[in-house]
Amino acid sequence: MTTLRALWEVSLALCLLAMLALLLLLLARVLSARLFDRTSAARQRLLPLLLDGDPTELEPLRKGEIQAAADLTVEIAEMTRGSEREALLARATALGVTDLLIARLRSRKAQSRLDAVEALSLFEGSHDYVIGALDDRNPDVRLGAALALAQHANAPAPIDIVNKLNVGAEENSLLLVSLMVDLAETNSEAVAGLLFEQDLSHRVKVAAMDALSQRGGEYAPLLAYMARDSGNEPELQPRIFRALGRTGHPAGADAIMEGMASDNWTVRAAAAEAVGKTRLVAAADRLSTLLNDPHYWVRYRASEALLRIGTRGVSVLREASRSEDPVVRSAALKMLAEGRA
């Protein structure tokens, strides 16, 4: 009986506790609404200071206002470019915004640290602090710092950045591709060098390949080599073929032709897609044999590629549209109709 009574009493206590907590939060909300009014007023006062005037005439703000100034700076910086942004950042530095952002790097909240890193990367003199954030305990903050650094010419070496990110163990994000694209803008050789690092996660290498493929045909022979060499990695190979296709360069022709004969349907589909993107007319006949592939995606990519490669491809599709095989006929007819639409 005492247990049953205790259950009732515990439920009452929990109920009261929850209500008390909510009451406190309601009170906190009322107070924060007042604070919000004060912040809005501070923003209105600070806006002209940030947008106009000589930075040397500005003095650091008081603690209460500087937070509003930091938020305002980031918001305006995202909307401005060039000299206008530089002048804004100079005024913000004079007002003490960078000091606040540096202090925020020590916040317990990962969200605050990430916001601070992204904001600090806008300021020329804060490079070392952003590099320091590559050692942050939170992987998202580290990635944010890496992405911010990669947009600057004086970014650390790609191998150092990927080592800090602990790719494969802690970091698997597709944003690695964005990182590699930005790093390749200033140092494509170093990004290509990642492909030959033996101990590096395959995720880094795939991201590097995706990034290099966006630089046109320059790295097509290297990607073609990688595509052939990755035959025993069915998850990886389709992505390399797609990267090879993106280069639009004929250097990958042999590798692509081999890819279309793969036992793995995802590789066949990716290779067929690459044919369309590189407009490999010589592959038209090989593509026509894929029109009766058991997998829809292979049939679709093959018929789409035939349409993309132009006259020769269209004539192969027309011929296939008269095929006795209903699967081939349907694929060809539908794609021809889509091409006309």
Partner: peptide, 22 residues
């Protein structure tokens, strides 16, 4: 007995209220 009823009310009403508020 009454404690049984109270325990039933606890699991059906009081804990429900505290969960929703939480």
């Amino acid at each position: 007995a009454l404690p049984w009823l109270l325990a039933f009310l606890a699991v059906t009403f009081m804990f429900g209220v505290s969960l929703s508020i939480a």
